[in-house]
């Protein structure tokens, strides 16, 4: 099942990529190929790879029928919700990264995640998060000269 989805995605991606290639304006000055030729080769390459995958799918199906194996389907499970939650929480962290600043946004982000994944150890979690944020901010901005978003904190 997943292989068939990959096959369809590869075909779709090849289609989108060919469309994107057609949008590139052509100015072939002293370059016999221009900016479109290599991308076109990649699009064709992706179609060939998709065809190879289709051959593998058909081959595996034949093998599964002879071996009596019918596994390989995808099932949504509770841990998938957790991963989706982490992704959504990280997306919110990125949205707030500049408005709130590195220190505040990271502190909130870490407190929530450590609170969920290291349950019951509130003091240890809070202390580690505060220390991590403070040390990383000052080490990177003051010692290494890395520019991090200040946000609403004035230093």
């Amino acid at each position: 099942m997943t292989d068939r989805i990959i096959f369809v995605c590869a075909l779709l991606l090849a289609g989108v990529y060919f469309w994107g290639t057609a949008q590139i304006p052509s100015l072939e000055l002293g370059d016999p190929l221009g900016p479109k030729a290599f991308p076109r080769m990649l699009g064709v390459g992706l179609l060939i790879a998709a065809a190879m995958l289709l051959a593998e799918i058909l081959n595996n199906r034949k093998k599964a029928v002879t071996d009596g194996d019918d596994s390989g389907g995808f099932k949504w499970e509770p841990h998938d919700w957790v991963v989706l939650g982490v992704v959504a929480w990280t997306a919110l962290y990125i949205v707030l990264f500049e408005p709130l600043g590195y220190m505040l946004a990271t502190l909130i982000y870490l407190l929530v995640l450590t609170g969920y994944f290291n349950r019951g150890r509130h003091l240890m979690n809070s202390l580690s998060c505060v220390l991590f944020v403070a040390i990383s901010y000052f080490a990177f901005t003051k010692l290494l000269g890395v520019n991090l978003a200040r946000g609403i904190i004035p230093f």
Binding site: T90, I94, F97, T114, F117, M124, C129, S136, F140
Partner: peptide, 23 residues
């Protein structure tokens, strides 16, 4: 080190490294 603390911090370190490239 509890992994529930370690993994979230890896995201923060990655964010610092990525933001440092172009801000």
């Amino acid at each position: 080190i509890p992994q529930g603390i370690l993994y979230p911090m890896i995201v923060a370190i990655s964010a610092i490294g990525a933001y440092a490239i172009n801000g």
